[in-house]
Simulated scan of single mutants.
Amino acid sequence: MCSEVRWKLCWENELELADHVELAEFFRKTYGPTGAFNAKPFEGSRSWAGARPELRAIGYDSNGVAAHMGLLRRFIKVGTVDLLVAELGLYGVRADLERLGISHSIRVMLPTLQELDVPFAFGTVRHELRKHIARFGRHGPVTVFSDILTQSTLPEPRLDKPPTRIDDALVIVLPVGRPISDWPTGEIIDRNGPEL
């Protein structure tokens, strides 16, 4: 059934309003079951939660959007080292496809990562997704760090909250242009912006 999914890579400026509306609905349905707060950023036609991706891999099947992965190139600080990465995030798979191995199709992004000439792809996920990421990592050189904190700014400044937040999430690193041994050490990663 995974072969029925067709993938489209598109830059953010290539998306039409109808694409954003369809993606926003996809994210509300995908993230909503994990808590109403998680679906809230996708109200109306907003198809991103924090930082806006610059490139998207969108999987479609006969029922519409089946999966999504966003990419944003940025400099992060790992400990004291500034490092260019392609942050991967805004990941989702439609509930009826979760157990069919569709996450492996996200590899459609790998040739693009190589073309972008970034040393690493980086992302974070909740600890509850550890087994899912471990399965994904069996098929490629993904390294998972569980003892590194990540600091991000809030997507929008608020009077009732501090401007930054620190998360204890799993950090995922995929070597692209450099070996994993070149990944710097540090107890905290600063995104210098909102999470993707």
Results as ranks from 00 to 15, higher is better:
residue 110 L to W: 04
residue 49 A to P: 07
residue 37 F to T: 13
residue 3 S to E: 15
residue 82 D to H: 15
residue 169 A to C: 09
residue 105 S to L: 13
residue 137 G to H: 03
residue 161 K to A: 10
residue 96 D to Q: 10
residue 148 I to T: 02
residue 32 G to C: 00
residue 97 L to M: 08
residue 91 Y to L: 13
residue 65 V to Q: 05
residue 46 R to T: 13
residue 54 E to F: 10
residue 14 E to P: 09
residue 22 E to D: 14
residue 79 G to W: 12
residue 165 R to M: 09
residue 51 A to F: 02
residue 126 R to V: 14
residue 47 S to K: 02
residue 102 I to L: 15
residue 191 R to H: 12
residue 53 P to A: 15
residue 192 N to L: 15
residue 22 E to V: 03
residue 161 K to G: 00
residue 8 K to T: 15
residue 106 I to P: 00
residue 37 F to I: 15
residue 101 G to M: 10
residue 196 L to Q: 01
residue 33 P to H: 08
residue 55 L to I: 15
residue 31 Y to N: 07
residue 74 R to I: 05
residue 152 S to T: 08
residue 19 D to Y: 07
residue 73 R to P: 01
residue 130 R to A: 05
residue 105 S to K: 06
residue 152 S to N: 09
residue 149 L to F: 10
residue 14 E to R: 12
residue 109 M to C: 06
residue 23 L to D: 12
residue 69 M to E: 13
residue 27 F to G: 04
residue 76 I to R: 02
residue 114 Q to E: 15
residue 182 D to S: 13
residue 153 T to F: 08
residue 31 Y to M: 02
residue 35 G to S: 09
residue 11 W to V: 03
residue 100 L to D: 11
residue 169 A to I: 01
residue 29 K to Q: 13
residue 168 D to C: 05
residue 92 G to Y: 14
residue 38 N to T: 11
residue 61 D to W: 02
residue 9 L to F: 07
residue 137 G to I: 04
residue 17 L to F: 09
residue 180 I to Y: 05
residue 101 G to Y: 11
residue 33 P to K: 07
residue 168 D to N: 06
residue 146 S to H: 10
residue 1 M to A: 12
residue 106 I to N: 02
residue 192 N to W: 10
residue 100 L to N: 03
residue 134 A to H: 09
residue 131 K to L: 12
residue 122 F to Q: 05
residue 71 L to V: 15
residue 133 I to Q: 03
residue 171 V to R: 00
residue 83 L to N: 08
residue 40 K to Y: 11
residue 13 N to E: 09
residue 37 F to A: 13
residue 47 S to Q: 11
residue 180 I to H: 12
residue 78 V to F: 04
residue 172 I to T: 00
residue 64 G to P: 06
residue 92 G to V: 04
residue 11 W to M: 07
residue 48 W to Q: 10
residue 163 P to Q: 01
residue 13 N to W: 08
residue 9 L to M: 15
residue 95 A to K: 05
residue 25 E to L: 10
residue 187 E to N: 11
residue 92 G to Q: 09
residue 92 G to K: 00
residue 5 V to N: 06
residue 27 F to L: 13
residue 192 N to K: 12
residue 163 P to K: 02
residue 184 P to Y: 09
residue 129 L to W: 13
residue 59 G to E: 12
residue 170 L to P: 06
residue 136 F to G: 02
residue 61 D to H: 06
residue 53 P to V: 08
residue 195 E to L: 14
residue 14 E to F: 05
residue 25 E to H: 11
residue 69 M to I: 15
residue 34 T to W: 12
residue 131 K to G: 14
residue 126 R to G: 06
residue 187 E to L: 07
residue 17 L to C: 03
residue 74 R to M: 15
residue 159 L to R: 04
